[in-house]
Design a protein around this nucleic acid. Structure first.
Lengths: 211, 211
DNA sequence: TCAATTACCAAACAACTGTTTGTTTGGCGA
DNA sequence: TCGCCAAACAAACAGTTGTTTGGTAATTGA
């Protein structure tokens, strides 16, 4: 994500094979003839999320997929484009999880709690598909699209907070940013153990929530 | 902070010139013959804090100091050692600021508020000497010494929280981690404007504090 | 005055980075 | 059977990275 990329970035979204891609012939147990692109995104997400963007090389990603580095460029025009795809995937996954957790519940606090639990789950649990969402700290080096996606995701929490019967004098924006911060920061200290992501989410909310 | 450094790291704390260093002969207006090492640390802190560790090269640091890259290795045996020095400096600075802000106050909430304001100030204000404290997200790639330093800093907040008359059922640890998270996360969204670091600190605390 | 030390320069090093290029493979529709 | 095309390989490219080495002015203590 260096400011000066080595080549100009295309805005295209990669070849996007409309015609069904042919299944990989090689390989022992025939895997699903699944969308190859999605596999790349998922594996890259895991690496970006755990090691960070700058500490993950295209060679790393290629290796875990079982491909040569150059071959990645058939699917994505640049590393940054790959990151955007990964981030976009993570946002849609998290959005789905949060929305599904919320729906059906009536009480505003219960809805927010469900959303927080879903958020923490995506952030800290085995999959950790959401961890890439918070793997980047230097915001001004983030591609514009990514910032847009992040805002889109956080808008859900904006709505949930708006529903809350908060006492006058409590800034909704600060409330939301504080809550998200306290949750996102958990990746710096969380270790699997007695406390689950869900229990942490509940406790964090409990600190904020008035008796 | 790659797990496998290119060379083994020394544990030494750099030459540490006890004898007064000679003033730079070159250069127009004669700067203070100040401790050179401290200048390096300060400039490196600014770069690490704003661009992040991996996006800051030894050449970047050398350039802002007006030195050749290799010359840095006279003062610090490796980039990682330099980072540890920077982090250590940031911790001691922040510790001083927080302790000074707290002392003289009696009320537990007032003490915590003063500490939070000091913390946010160091994090977001012009100097931003504390921003390097939160510039790293992947904790397991952090040098051990840095983790120790971080814990030492956060211990102050541990004490401040312990003083608080919190209602039963509120986990002190979660309270502290949540508060620190909500503050530290502010570097991802704070922009200088109407809201000051101090006002943000107060509002974040106000969300947590019970009426 | 002279040897030692401090703090640097100049130049290179190997390893690694993202990326490009040309080529090959295998299946599918015509 | 033929040509097409998705998807990969193989190999290199140029630039950047942290770091090392050997030398050299300026200052200092003796």
């Amino acid at each position: 994500m260096t400011a000066k990329s080595q080549r100009a970035r295309s805005t295209a979204q990669a070849p996007s094979p409309k015609t069904a891609p042919r299944p990989r012939a090689s390989g022992k147990t025939q895997e699903l003839p699944d969308d190859r692109r999605q596999v790349l995104i998922s594996e890259a997400a895991r690496l970006f999320g755990s090691k960070g963007y700058e500490n993950t090389s295209m060679r790393d990603i290629a290796a875990v997929v079982g491909i040569l580095p150059g071959s990645l460029y058939y699917h994505f025009p640049s590393k940054e484009d790959l990151f955007v795809a990964v981030y976009s995937f993570a946002v849609s996954q998290s959005l789905d999880a949060v929305k599904q957790a919320v729906e059906g519940r009536d009480d505003a606090w219960a809805r927010l709690e469900a959303a927080c639990i879903a958020h923490m789950h995506g952030l800290l649990d085995k999959n950790r598909f959401a961890s890439v969402l918070v793997s980047h700290l230097a915001v001004d080096t983030l591609p514009e699209q990514v910032v847009t996606l992040r805002d889109k995701y956080e808008a859900v929490f904006k709505d949930l907070v708006a529903e809350l019967p908060l006492p006058a004098g409590v800034d909704q924006r600060i409330f939301r940013l504080g809550l998200l911060g306290s949750m996102n920061w958990a990746i710096t200290w969380y270790r699997p153990g007695v406390e689950t992501p869900a229990s942490i989410a509940r406790k964090l909310l409990n600190v904020i929530r008035r008796a």
